[in-house]
Simulated scan of single mutants.
Amino acid sequence: MTRSPYQLSVAPEVLDRLHPRLRAYFGPVPTGHVGRGEGRFEVVGTPRRWLWPLLAWFARDAVMFPVWERDVPFSVENRPARVRRGQADVLEARIAVRAHRTFHFRSGDRTMVDAITAEPEGLTDHLGRRGRVSALLRTEVDAEGPDRGALRLVSTRVTFRALGRGWCLPAVLTPRVTLVERFDDDADVQRVSLVLSAPVVGTLYRYEGAFRYAVVPDARRGPDAGRGRGR
């Protein structure tokens, strides 16, 4: 991978405002390498137990989980991949970064899967193993202020894939994803915060924490490494 999906979708002057340590995280993962990180989440999930049956449905495809836990160890792996996207009759293999975030819950390990691609409409996150839920993302990087150098991703459209095409929810029903990644120089860690919210209801799901990350040679790379499935 010579350019990451972020570099293909976001204006260079925006990425230039990133903290130097974040440029490596959102840059390309070289062939034969993998990005690995380990850390802890302060919180994961939602205390609203009436949402857990819905989250259990998303858990089957490794999107979200019916939990509410604090101080959760986790690991992340970012790998270069090719993900097939487009209409059912015209699928294109697009450059992607596929992430696996493994949460070490008290009840056992659970892994969240997603793939970031550069689509004609812009940067897009395809959630789950099959990528049936996609979020078109707006990218922001502050040049000044408390979040200077941090990356903020805000969803502007959520699409569900079924019957060979994408279906968009009406704006009044569409949940919003807000993800903030910033680097804490004092603690020498990368901090991440994700909030999924909906009109009227408010926060549906969130996680926030910190981790350390590096791109290293992929000793476990095999014939299936980096192969995407999303349709």
Rank of each mutant, 00 (worst) to 15 (best):
S75L: 02
R79F: 00
H100T: 10
P53D: 08
R176G: 12
V14P: 00
V216M: 01
D71P: 01
P53M: 05
R157D: 04
V177P: 00
D218G: 00
V67Y: 08
W57V: 15
P28Y: 09
R182L: 07
T117E: 10
Y207H: 03
T124K: 07
D61I: 04
V83A: 09
R40D: 12
E121Y: 06
V192S: 05
V83M: 10
L169V: 10
E119R: 03
P20A: 14
G166T: 05
R17L: 14
L22M: 14
V72H: 08
D89Q: 11
T2W: 14
E140K: 14
H33L: 08
C168Q: 15
R152P: 06
V141N: 05
A118H: 12
L137W: 11
R148V: 07
Q87I: 12
R79Q: 09
T2K: 14
G222L: 03
V177I: 11
A219R: 08
R182F: 07
R132N: 12
D188I: 01
V200E: 04
V29R: 10
R36D: 00
F211E: 05
L136I: 15
H104N: 12
G164W: 02
I116K: 13
D218R: 00
R23W: 13
L15Q: 10
R220T: 08
R130E: 10
R79V: 09
L18T: 13
Y25Q: 14
S134I: 03
V83N: 08
L18K: 13
V141C: 01
L151D: 06
R212K: 02
R229P: 06
Q7I: 14
T102C: 09
P47M: 06
R84H: 14
S197C: 03
S75K: 03
M112S: 06
A88G: 02
R85P: 02
P175W: 02
G149R: 10
V200P: 01
V113S: 02
E42Q: 15
A225R: 13
T124Y: 04
D224R: 15
P120Y: 07
D224E: 12
A24T: 15
M1N: 14
E121S: 11
R60P: 02
W52F: 01
D109A: 11
Y205A: 02
T46V: 06
G108H: 05
R229A: 13
D71F: 07
L22C: 13
